[in-house]
Design a protein around this nucleic acid. Structure first.
Lengths: 345, 345
DNA sequence: TCAAGACCTGAATCCTGGC
DNA sequence: CGCCAGGATTCAGGTCTTG
């Protein structure tokens, strides 16, 4: 990081290692063994060693970060208090801490503690008075027109998204979900800005940055992970239509925010939706809004607002109005909400 | 706190002040600053002053706390990283951090940040290896028979519960909801134990402790708040029915040795047991041990020992591992223990 | 082919008492 | 303190197997 020109980076996302102690094996109640994190890069002798490591990378990050840039750090109770304390000492100004609530955390097998169901992100500016980027309206749109809160419910990375090696084993022990990085990048950068991840790992930050048309730099010590990340990011297509990335204003309604479908990957930005008669089309944008051209003119906004506008009506339930092509059949997007709602219950 | 006998307190709940107005040292008037350098030094001084205040009360708390006691601290991003970092340095061992998710937080008015919708609690033991209290089954019951997670959704204190003065103004600016303290006290203490709150404020900790039949001590510098808290707690009635307080705890149930099943005739010597996949068999002997021949060799000993041996594992719960044929169905031998336990009650 | 159920796994500071 | 043995303990989501 020290090699980067001073102040050249617009946003930093960092997931520093933190394993200070490796106990014996943890087994599940059925006696199967939990495949924990035991990578060599993840070991520290004591608090002091961890603190100097942390101070070092944080000050390098501070050097690389532009004056108006922001820093995100993610961690758990093992390390986040040390990181947060040190970044305050280095002059960073905490804007929020954000809780990543995991919908599917690993249970506590011994019944000795609360299920560890979250991780903490700290979002900080370089100092108290800076003009940092916060795409307030995008966040609000992603949250169905309610202010985005500091607690985010997002599943851990598993299934198809999880990178695996030839033997089907997870390729990286702490791969972050793209939905998390989507929200981070959307919140605190503009298209074209430069994002740095100093602990690149499987490259989730780069993959999301590339898709959202941000520039990115990843630093990774392990050549194996670097290769993995390169391969992964090569397959990512930047969103083609710059309009889909435009940061917008205003939107409409309730329960499961439509934006979550986008974040969660149930709906790709750019997906085409149809009205019930298949006369009109609308495109899904990255912030969970739609764009639609109709004989009456162009419309953009929430699924509800655009649905109403193209009908010349005052109200519309976008969930039942807009349809999706699924294997040749037209299906209301509400099925995705139901799917997501089921997942989140 | 220093006046309390060392190790006399079973649990501490602390909501330390953090507005940087603790006495003269921490006061930071909002006067204009000369330049950035002064600003940085100024800030450093503030952090330093807050840190010494924190180190002081934390070490006093450590002195008062019994070796098997636990400490809870609640805070926000302004101070929680300093508190967490310092308590680690003092030797406390973090068990969980817990997120209090507010269902009704104050919105962010200026739209420059995420809505600050949570506070953080740190739960810590006095050191790494202690026998702290955690009422696992109580927490599980509170959560619809699912393990209690580290994120708690609880509304802020308002309405009837909020203490008000004669003019109808809130009597204390940071009154905590009793639901929050209820969960804290229920999780980490037993009835009759001693709870200390060194920043007593409106006395929520005392009110809940009294109702749940814990003993309590409150420390409060402001006489006005102390008076308020006394009045409030005087009106609280301890729960009359001890059963309401009873902590459902499987661990406290009488231990039933496997051999008793044989002694009591619930299991005949010579009975054949099976592993869950019905690949292996073991025979019950008159002394309550098993004999088992497996591809890896012969084994003899307790149900747990033999179960572990045949799996090549280091541990095994024999009660759930070994099965019995009952009318054609395979049933874990634990059902016999339950039967005997019922007979013995 | 489909539905039901078995099986696998995820950043985890994960037991306790007696000798 | 170390060692040993008894015995208590899991949720959600995705994939695979079976009928």
């Amino acid at each position: 990081m020290r090699d980067l020109p001073a102040g050249s980076v617009d946003m930093i996302f960092a997931d520093p290692p933190y394993n200070m102690q490796l106990g014996g094996d943890l087994t599940r109640p059925d006696n199967s063994r939990v495949d924990g994190v035991d990578d060599a890069w993840d070991k520290f002798d004591d608090l002091k060693a961890y603190d100097s490591f942390t101070r070092e990378w944080l000050s390098a990050a501070r050097h690389a970060l532009s004056d108006d840039g922001t820093l995100w750090v993610i961690g758990s109770y093992h390390n986040i208090y040390r990181v947060g304390s040190l970044l305050q000492e280095l002059g960073f100004w905490i804007l929020n801490d954000v809780i990543w609530r995991k919908s599917n955390p690993m249970p506590n097998f011994r019944g000795r503690r609360f299920t560890n169901a979250h991780e903490t992100l700290i979002w900080a500016a370089k100092s108290e008075r800076t003009r940092y980027v916060f795409n307030y309206e995008s966040m609000k749109s992603l949250n169905d027109d309610l202010q985005m809160r500091s607690d985010w419910l997002i599943p851990i990375c598993s299934g198809q998204e999880r990178l695996r090696d030839k033997e089907g084993q997870k390729a990286h022990s702490t791969q972050k979900p793209e939905a998390l990085l989507h929200r981070v990048v959307m919140a605190s950068t503009k298209p074209g800005q430069l994002v740095l991840d100093p602990f690149f790992g499987s490259g989730t930050t780069g993959a999301v940055a590339k898709r959202l048309r941000r520039r990115w730099i990843g630093i990774e010590r392990e050549e194996g992970y670097a290769k993995l990340a390169r391969k992964r990011i090569d397959r990512v297509e930047p969103l083609a239509d710059p309009e889909l990335l435009e940061i917008k204003q205003k939107r409409a309604e309730p329960r499961i925010p439509f934006g979550w479908l986008v974040e969660r990957g149930l709906l790709e930005p750019g997906t085409v939706l149809y009205d019930p008669n298949r006369r009109l089309t609308a495109k899904v944008r990255a912030d969970g809004t739609l764009v639609c051209s109709s004989p009456q003119g162009d419309h953009h906004g929430s699924i509800h607002k655009v649905g109403a506008a193209v009908q010349g009506a005052t109200a519309c339930n976008g969930w039942t109005f807009w349809h999706l092509n699924v294997e040749g059949r037209s299906v209301p997007i509400d099925v995705l909400r139901q799917k997501l709602r089921a997942e989140l219950n």
